[in-house]
C-alpha cells in the first residue's frame, strides 16, 4: 500500500514560504510526477514527504496514518537521489544490502532480496564492484536497487536522470516505467523536464512557486491546461500565445495555440509571416515564423516541408484547438 495525503502542508525557510499551504492526494500504485521550473519547490515537497525536511505546518499521512513527525527511515519510503548518493566505500552488494542490514533483517532473506533486485536490474555481474567502477547508468540502477530491496510503500525519485546523457536518459526512462509496471508500487518522481513528466506519469502535478497549478493526467494537462502557465509549460515546442485583436475577437486577454495545431500554407491564411529558422528533424519540421504584429510563432509541419529562411508563409490556427485565457491567466471555459 502507498497512499499519501498532504493536508495544508506549509514549509518556510526562515521568513520565506517555499510552500504556502498545499493539499495533495497520491493514490496507491500511482506514478506521480512533480514538474515545474527550477526553484518551484518540487524537490522541497519531495523531501517533506521523505521526512528529510520538517514541515512548518500541516499534516502528511501515509496510508491513513499521520506521519508528520515520523523519522525518514520509519516512513517506509525509499528515495533515489539526484547524485545517486551511493556509498563510495561499499561494493554494489553492500550498498544494496545496507537498508536491510539497518532494518536487522535475517541474512538469508537479505541475500535473497539482493539477488532478486540484482536480477531485475541486470546488476548480477557487478555486485562485487565499487560504485567508482560503474558507468552512470549502472550507478543509477544500483541506487534504484537500494530502493527496491526495502519493498517500500512508495519510491521517491529526485531528478534521477539529470546526470545521464541524452540516450541513456531515454533508456532509463523506459526502465523506470517498466519497473513501475512490474512492482505496481506508488512512485513520486521529481523533474524539471516536461518530456519526462508526459512520458512517465499517470498523474502530473505542475508546481510553480510552491503552489500546485494543476493536477491531472498528461493528456488532461495537454488538452485542457488550467491556466497560461501550465499551457506554456506542458508541450514541446511551447504553445504560441497571441494577444491583441485576435484575442479580443474571442473575448479573451490571451489566446494560445500549439505549434502542432496550426495549418501551414504557401498561399493564404489567417496570419502572414516570414520563416526565420527552420529546424528539420526528419519526422517533423519546426518553423519559426516572424508574424507581422506578433511575436515569433512556432509551427510544426511535415518532415518534408521545403520552407526555407526568408520564405513567406501563411498560418491558420485550428479553430477548435485554440485555448482562451482571461486577464488573470486562467483558462476561460
Amino acid at each position: 500500500m502507498g497512499k499519501i495525503s498532504l493536508r495544508k502542508v506549509t514549509k518556510k525557510f526562515g521568513e520565506v514560504a517555499v510552500i504556502p499551504s498545499l493539499d495533495l492526494e497520491i493514490n496507491d500504485g500511482e506514478f506521480v510526477v512533480f514538474v515545474g521550473p527550477s526553484g518551484c519547490g518540487k524537490s522541497t515537497l519531495l523531501r517533506l514527504i521523505a521526512g528529510l525536511e520538517d514541515v512548518t505546518d500541516g499534516v502528511i499521512e501515509i496510508d491513513g496514518v499521520n506521519a508528520t513527525q515520523t523519522p525518514p527511515a520509519k516512513r517506509g519510503l525509499a528515495m533515489v537521489f539526484q547524485s545517486y548518493a551511493l556509498y563510495p566505500h561499499m561494493s554494489v552488494r553492500k550498498n544494496i544490502t545496507f537498508p536491510l542490514k539497518m532494518a536487522g533483517m535475517d541474512p538469508a532473506e537479505q541475500e535473497r532480496r539482493v539477488a532478486n533486485a540484482a536480477k531485475v536490474l541486470n546488476l548480477t555481474d557487478y555486485l562485487e564492484r565499487k560504485p567508482g567502477q560503474l558507468s552512470g547508468g549502472q550507478r543509477q540502477r544500483v541506487a534504484i536497487g537500494r530502493a527496491i530491496v526495502r519493498e517500500p510503500k512508495a519510491f521517491l525519485f529526485d531528478e534521477p536522470l539529470s546526470n545521464l546523457d541524452a540516450a541513456l536518459r531515454v533508456n532509463m526512462r523506459l526502465e523506470i516505467t517498466e519497473l513501475h509496471h512490474t512492482l505496481k508500487t506508488t512512485m513520486i518522481y521529481v523533474t524539471h523536464d516536461q518530456v519526462e513528466a508526459m512520458t512517465m506519469a499517470d498523474k502530473i502535478v505542475v508546481l510553480q512557486a510552491g503552489r500546485v497549478e494543476q493536477v491531472g493526467s498528461p493528456l488532461e494537462l495537454y488538452n485542457a491546461p488550467a491556466n497560461i502557465f501550465v499551457a506554456g509549460f506542458i508541450g514541446s515546442p511551447r504553445m504560441n500565445f497571441v494577444t491583441g485583436a485576435d484575442a479580443d475577437k474571442l473575448n479573451a486577454k490571451t489566446i494560445g495555440v500549439r505549434p502542432e495545431h496550426i495549418d501551414l500554407s504557401k498561399d493564404a491564411g489567417h496570419w502572414k509571416g516570414t520563416v526565420t529558422v527552420s529546424e528539420h528533424l526528419g519526422s517533423d519540421t519546426f518553423l519559426h515564423v516572424a508574424v507581422e504584429g506578433q511575436d515569433t510563432m512556432t509551427v510544426r509541419a511535415d518532415g518534408d516541408v521545403a520552407a526555407r529562411y526568408g520564405d513567406t508563409v501563411y498560418l491558420t490556427p485550428q479553430a477548435d484547438r485554440i485555448h482562451r485565457f482571461g486577464a488573470d491567466g486562467k483558462t476561460l471555459k
Binding site: A73, M79, Y87, R146, R150
Partner: peptide, 14 residues
Amino acid sequence: PGEILEAARMDGAD
C-alpha cells in the same frame, strides 16, 4: 556530500 547522509537516514541508519 549531504545526500549520502540523507540516503543513509532514508535507509534507516541511526
